[in-house]
């Protein structure tokens, strides 16, 4: 019993303290038992002593000196908020994507539902793990969510400025963007076969897949990166809640990375279904290369637009730094 108690106290203490505290406790328990009324039996004594020492976990935390948290009180509110946002976006994103899928798919409904639940579970789990992991890391290193730096002694100058109304980042927009990203990501990852061009041919609906599934497989990692980068941008914006120079720079940087990666991918001829390339060239005056060029231009323009707007807001509302 005594050994079990000591084990319970010391098992989560740092290794170098373990032995010393263990032997110290052993002697203490021994001494306490010696100091007791001899009329008591050995077992009664042990029982009494251990009760007096109390819950081993409490004793261990006293030895440790401070409470340990995976996600402590400083981070908990933010954590909860981000977690809700992420889980909700994943849920809606995947549901919508699968909704589309079920309209166009030839698979049986039952099979679709099974797949849907499976995807939903694994994606939610992934999301939750990432969020928890990131926050645990912040907690462990005591990095402030607000400043991104080690927490220092508080000083009035750290008080955030009252935000200009226009400086506040709309949560709704960010959540919407995350959902869109999740929907597209889900489509690319789990239902790439349904992306394509649908057109009327006689009575039925005819369909040409847009993507070459084998070619696509090799770029899944990059595609995943593009979308997770976008989701990350939106998450950072939500957490911060208002435009600052730092947010503007981070957003711009991630935007550029994401754009570069996507342009890289669309230029890989492998990922496109060769049939669709031919069809387009056959029925429209523009060549497929042209279309890719136009898409690239669109991505670049959008990226520049977003970055300029972010930087503008950052400079205007972010103050110095």
């Amino acid at each position: 019993m005594i050994d079990r108690y000591i084990y319970a106290v010391t098992k989560k203490l740092p290794r170098k303290l373990k032995n010393e505290i263990g032997s110290e406790l052993k002697v203490l328990i021994d001494d306490m038992m010696d100091g007791m009324d001899n009329a008591l039996s050995e077992e009664e004594k042990v029982d009494k002593v251990l009760r007096e020492l109390g819950n081993p976990q409490e004793l261990a935390s006293r030895y440790r000196g401070k409470e340990r948290y995976l996600i402590g009180p400083n981070y908990f509110d933010k954590y909860l908020f981000v977690m809700k946002t992420v889980v909700l976006s994943i849920f809606i994103g995947i549901s919508v994507a699968w909704g589309f899928g079920s309209i166009f798919s030839i698979e049986s409904i039952a099979g679709m539902i099974g797949d849907y639940i499976g995807t939903l579970l694994s994606a939610t789990l992934q999301g939750a793990t990432w969020v928890t992991g990131i926050f645990a890391l912040l907690e462990y290193n005591e990095i402030s969510v607000e400043t991104g730096m080690k927490q220092k002694a508080w000083d009035p100058s750290q008080l955030p400025e009252l935000p200009d109304k226009k400086a506040i980042i709309s949560r709704g927009e960010s959540i919407f963007a995350i959902m869109i990203a999740t929907i597209i990501l889900t489509l690319f990852f789990f239902l790439p076969e349904i992306i394509g061009i649908y057109y009327k041919a006689g009575d039925g609906l005819n369909f040409i897949p847009l993507l070459n599934l084998e070619g696509l497989a090799r770029f899944k990692v990059i595609i995943f990166l593009v979308f997770t980068t976008n989701i990350l941008i939106e998450l950072i914006k939500i957490i911060k809640g208002r435009w600052t120079m730092k947010i503007a720079i981070i957003t711009t940087l991630l935007n550029v990375i994401s754009a570069t990666l996507s342009i890289n991918v669309i230029y890989k001829i492998d990922i496109w279904n060769s049939e669709i390339v031919q069809k387009i060239e056959q029925y429209t005056p523009v060549s497929f290369e042209r279309i890719i060029l136009i898409t690239t231009a669109a991505i670049i323009i959008i990226t520049i637009g977003e970055s300029v707007s972010a930087l503008y807001k950052g400079i205007k509302y972010g103050g110095k730094k």
């Binding site: 007096e52 020492l53 006293r62 030895y63 000196g65």
Partner: peptide
């Protein structure tokens, strides 16, 4: 004073 207070305190 109780042992479970004193022992950790001494160490600290």
């Amino acid at each position: 004073i109780e042992a479970n207070t004193l022992y950790p305190l001494l160490r600290r």
